Computed example of a mutant assay.
Amino acid sequence: MSLLPRPARLAVLAALDIALHSRSRPVSSRALAARHDLPPRHLESMLQAMVRAGILKSVRGPAGGYELARERRRLYIGEIVRVALRAEEGAQDGEEPRLLTLAVDPVFAEAERQALAKLDTITLDELHGQAVAAGLGEIEANEGDFEI
């Protein structure tokens, strides 16, 4: 069980995947979706929200896709999660029950505040290091290292 909604976790997954796989060229949303067995349409709106927030940049053209807009060490997980939470918040409609808004939501709001404060101390570079140590990500080619 996770307190963070799935879109927030998927936003972090997308940013980490792009960090792991965009060394040689941008990562297409289709390739990202296929790697993680996710519907591409669902990812595209989240990726665009991250572009608008300055987390990712979009590269157009036949070899286009997404790249990080900043260095991994300058991207914090809390920032990525907030973008996804704002996008999800905009998608919700309807009146909430008073018991939820007056009694339950304040407790979760405080837990969310504390969780985001902690996530603001973790960089994408740290997650990248953990993923590489676990053997995940793109295998780097030894360019210039060859035998005759």
Rank of each mutant, 00 (worst) to 15 (best):
residue 33 A to I: 00
residue 51 V to L: 08
residue 49 A to N: 03
residue 22 S to I: 06
residue 61 G to R: 09
residue 24 S to C: 14
residue 36 H to W: 13
residue 31 A to N: 11
residue 35 R to L: 06
residue 27 V to P: 01
residue 24 S to A: 15
residue 36 H to N: 13
residue 22 S to W: 05
residue 22 S to L: 07
residue 53 A to V: 06
residue 62 P to T: 13
residue 24 S to K: 13
residue 38 L to S: 08
residue 43 L to R: 03
residue 35 R to I: 02
residue 56 L to W: 00
residue 62 P to H: 15
residue 31 A to F: 03
residue 55 I to M: 06
residue 62 P to K: 15
residue 60 R to N: 10
residue 27 V to M: 11
residue 46 M to R: 15
residue 62 P to C: 10
residue 49 A to S: 13
residue 62 P to S: 15
residue 55 I to W: 03
residue 30 R to F: 00
residue 58 S to I: 00
residue 49 A to L: 00
residue 36 H to G: 07
residue 58 S to P: 05
residue 44 E to D: 11
residue 32 L to S: 00
residue 52 R to I: 05
residue 46 M to I: 12
residue 42 H to D: 10
residue 36 H to F: 08
residue 64 G to Q: 05
residue 54 G to V: 02
residue 28 S to I: 01
residue 64 G to S: 07
residue 51 V to Y: 06
residue 34 A to T: 12
residue 51 V to S: 08
residue 62 P to Y: 11
residue 35 R to S: 08
residue 36 H to Q: 09
residue 49 A to T: 05
residue 58 S to Q: 14
residue 64 G to N: 04
residue 59 V to F: 04
residue 27 V to R: 14
residue 60 R to H: 12
residue 60 R to P: 06
residue 38 L to Y: 05
residue 47 L to E: 00
residue 46 M to A: 11
residue 44 E to L: 09
residue 34 A to E: 12
residue 34 A to F: 06
residue 40 P to K: 04
residue 47 L to I: 05
residue 24 S to H: 13
residue 64 G to L: 02
residue 28 S to Q: 03
residue 60 R to W: 02
residue 37 D to Q: 13
residue 46 M to V: 11
residue 45 S to W: 12
residue 26 P to D: 00
residue 44 E to H: 11
residue 53 A to M: 08
residue 40 P to L: 00
residue 29 S to V: 06
residue 61 G to A: 04
residue 50 M to K: 10
residue 58 S to N: 12
residue 54 G to E: 00
residue 63 A to P: 07
residue 28 S to W: 01
residue 43 L to F: 02
residue 22 S to E: 07
residue 39 P to E: 09
residue 55 I to K: 07
residue 46 M to H: 12
residue 31 A to I: 04
residue 43 L to N: 01
residue 46 M to K: 12
residue 58 S to R: 15
residue 40 P to G: 05
residue 62 P to N: 15
residue 31 A to M: 08
residue 34 A to C: 08
residue 34 A to R: 15
residue 43 L to G: 02
residue 42 H to K: 14
residue 31 A to R: 14
residue 63 A to C: 12
residue 39 P to S: 08
